[in-house]
Amino acid sequence: MLDDRARMEAAKKEKVEQILAEFQLQEEDLKKVMRRMQKEMDRGLRLETHEEASVKMLPTYVRSTPEGSEVGDFLSLDLGGTNFRVMLVKVGEGEEGQWSVKTKHQMYSIPEDAMTGTAEMLFDYISECISDFLDKHQMKHKKLPLGFTFSFPVRHEDIDKGILLNWTKGFKASGAEGNNVVGLLRDAIKRRGDFEMDVVAMVNDTVATMISCYYEDHQCEVGMIVGTGCNACYMEEMQNVELVEGDEGRMCVNTEWGAFGDSGELDEFLLEYDRLVDESSANPGQQLYEKLIGGKYMGELVRLVLLRLVDENLLFHGEASEQLRTRGAFETRFVSQVESDTGDRKQIYNILSTLGLRPSTTDCDIVRRACESVSTRAAHMCSAGLAGVINRMRESRSEDVMRITVGVDGSVYKLHPSFKERFHASVRRLTPSCEITFIESEEGSGRGAALVSAVACKKACMLGQ
Rank of each mutant, 00 (worst) to 15 (best):
Ser54Asn: 11
Phe171Gln: 11
Arg368Lys: 04
Tyr234Leu: 01
Asp160Leu: 03
Met37Gly: 01
Gly227Asn: 04
Asp344Asn: 03
Arg422Asp: 11
Gly448Leu: 09
Ala6His: 03
Leu309Asp: 00
Gly249His: 01
Leu271Ser: 07
His105Gln: 04
Ile351Arg: 06
Asp160Thr: 04
Ser109Trp: 08
Gly117Glu: 12
Arg155His: 07
His141Met: 08
Thr82Ile: 13
Cys371Ile: 07
Gly444Glu: 14
Gln138Met: 06
Ala320Cys: 14
Cys129Asn: 03
Glu22Ala: 07
Ser174Asn: 13
Ser375Cys: 12
Arg429Pro: 07
Leu47Thr: 10
Asn391Ala: 13
Glu237Gly: 08
Asp160Met: 04
Ile126Thr: 04
Gly193Leu: 05
Lys32Cys: 15
Ala188Val: 04
Gly261Lys: 00
Tyr289Pro: 02
Cys364Lys: 00
Glu319Gly: 11
Cys457Tyr: 09
Gln323Arg: 09
Met37Val: 06
His424Pro: 02
Met462Tyr: 08
Ile126Met: 03
Gly178Lys: 14
Arg377Val: 00
Met462Thr: 11
Thr362Asp: 12
Val199Arg: 08
Met251Asn: 03
Leu463His: 06
Ala384Tyr: 00
Arg345Met: 10
Asp217Trp: 01
His424Gln: 05
Ser426Gln: 15
Val277Gly: 04
Cys457Arg: 13
Leu352Trp: 03
Cys213Glu: 04
Leu415Glu: 08
Phe74Met: 14
Met107Ile: 09
Glu322Gly: 13
Ser281Asp: 12
Thr326Pro: 08
Gln18Ala: 12
Leu309Gly: 02
Val154Gly: 02
Trp167Val: 15
Ala379Lys: 00
Ile211Tyr: 14
Asn240Tyr: 02
Tyr273Ser: 05
Leu88Ile: 04
Leu2Cys: 13
Leu165Met: 12
Glu28Phe: 15
Ser69Tyr: 14
Arg5Gln: 15
Val207Cys: 07
Leu88Met: 07
Pro432Thr: 12
Gly117Asp: 14
Lys161Met: 12
Lys56Gln: 12
Leu315Gln: 00
Lys31Gln: 10
Ile351Cys: 12
Ser375Arg: 01
Asp409Leu: 06
Arg308Met: 01
Asp267Gln: 09
Gly81Pro: 15
Gly318Phe: 08
His137Glu: 08
Pro153Ser: 04
Gly229Asp: 11
Met139Gly: 05
His141Gly: 12
Glu40Ile: 02
Arg397Met: 05
Cys233Lys: 00
Asp187Phe: 00
Asn166Met: 07
Ser76His: 06
Gly183Thr: 08
Gln98Arg: 08
Ser441Pro: 04
Asn240Asp: 14
Gln106Lys: 12
Asp344Thr: 07
Cys230Tyr: 05
Gln18Gly: 08
Ser263Ile: 13
Thr149Gln: 10
Arg392Met: 05
Ile404Cys: 14
Glu395Thr: 11
Val86Trp: 03
Val33Phe: 05
Phe150Tyr: 12
Pro111Ser: 11
Ile351Pro: 03
Phe133Trp: 03
Glu435Tyr: 05
Phe269Leu: 13
Val241Lys: 01
Gly68Ile: 11
Asn350Gln: 05
Pro284Ile: 08
Glu120Thr: 01
Leu20Ser: 00
Val401Tyr: 10
Thr354Ala: 06
Glu245Arg: 10
Glu435Trp: 07
Lys190Asn: 12
Arg191Thr: 04
Thr60Asp: 02
Ser151Glu: 11
Gly223Glu: 06
Phe23Ser: 00
Val241Met: 06
Val203Cys: 04
Tyr297Leu: 07
Val310Glu: 01
Glu216Trp: 01
Phe260Thr: 00
Arg394Asp: 06
Glu245Lys: 09
Cys371Pro: 00
Ser280Ala: 12
Leu25Arg: 01
Leu20Gln: 00
Cys364His: 03
Arg397Gln: 00
His380Glu: 13
Leu430Trp: 03
Tyr234Phe: 14
Glu331Thr: 11
Ala460Glu: 14
Leu314Lys: 06
Ile351Tyr: 02
Val412Lys: 03
Lys32Tyr: 01
Val408Cys: 12
Met57Tyr: 03
Ser280Leu: 12
Gly183Trp: 06
Glu248Ile: 05
Tyr61Ser: 12
Lys31Ala: 06
Phe84Ile: 09
Ser212Ala: 05
Ala370Arg: 00
Glu272Cys: 15
Leu75His: 03
Ser353Leu: 02
Lys56Tyr: 01
Gly295Cys: 12
Ser418Lys: 09
Thr116Cys: 14
Val154Asn: 06
Ser109His: 09
Val427His: 02
Tyr215Gly: 09
Phe150Ala: 13
Phe334Ser: 02
Thr149Ile: 07
Asn83Asp: 04
Leu77Tyr: 04
Lys420Val: 07
Leu2Pro: 13
Arg155Thr: 08
Gln219Ala: 06
Ser375Asp: 07
Lys346Leu: 08
Thr49His: 10
Ser340Asn: 04
Met37Thr: 01
Leu352Phe: 09
Gln337Val: 08
His105Cys: 09
Ser280Ile: 08
Asp409Arg: 10
Phe419Pro: 00
Thr354Phe: 03
Ala460Arg: 10
Arg429Val: 09
Gly229Lys: 02
Arg155Ser: 15
Asp267Glu: 09
Met238Arg: 02
Asp42Ile: 05
Thr149Ser: 14
Lys420Thr: 05
Leu315Gly: 02
Met139Cys: 10
Met393Glu: 01
Arg428Asp: 07
Ala259Thr: 13
Ser131Leu: 10
Gln38Glu: 03
Asp194Met: 14
Leu122Ile: 08
Gly328Ala: 14
Glu440Cys: 11
Arg85Cys: 05
Glu440Arg: 06
Thr332Trp: 12
Glu372Pro: 00
Ser441Met: 11
Gln38Gly: 07
Leu276Thr: 07
Ile225Thr: 13
Ser373Arg: 09
Thr209Phe: 02
Leu324His: 00
Lys32Val: 10
Leu243Gln: 08
Pro432His: 10
Ala119Thr: 07
Asn240Lys: 06
Leu165Gln: 13
Glu17Gln: 14
His50Val: 10
Gly388Tyr: 01
Val101Gln: 07
Ile159Arg: 15
Ala370Gln: 01
Glu290Ile: 04
Val33Thr: 12
Leu309Lys: 00
Gly81Thr: 15
Cys382Trp: 05
Glu93Tyr: 15
Leu47His: 04
Asp400Ser: 06
Gly318Met: 03
Leu276Glu: 15
Ala387Asp: 00
Ala188Gly: 08
Thr116Gln: 15
Arg345Phe: 13
Glu245Met: 14
Gly356Leu: 02
Ser321Thr: 14
Gly285Leu: 03
Gly294Arg: 02
Ile390Gln: 00
Phe133Leu: 04
Ser360Lys: 09
Asp160Asn: 14
Val200Phe: 12
Gly385Lys: 00
Ser212Phe: 03
Cys129Phe: 06
Ile19His: 06
Leu144Val: 12
Leu352Gln: 00
Ser373Ile: 14
Ala449Glu: 07
Glu395Gly: 08
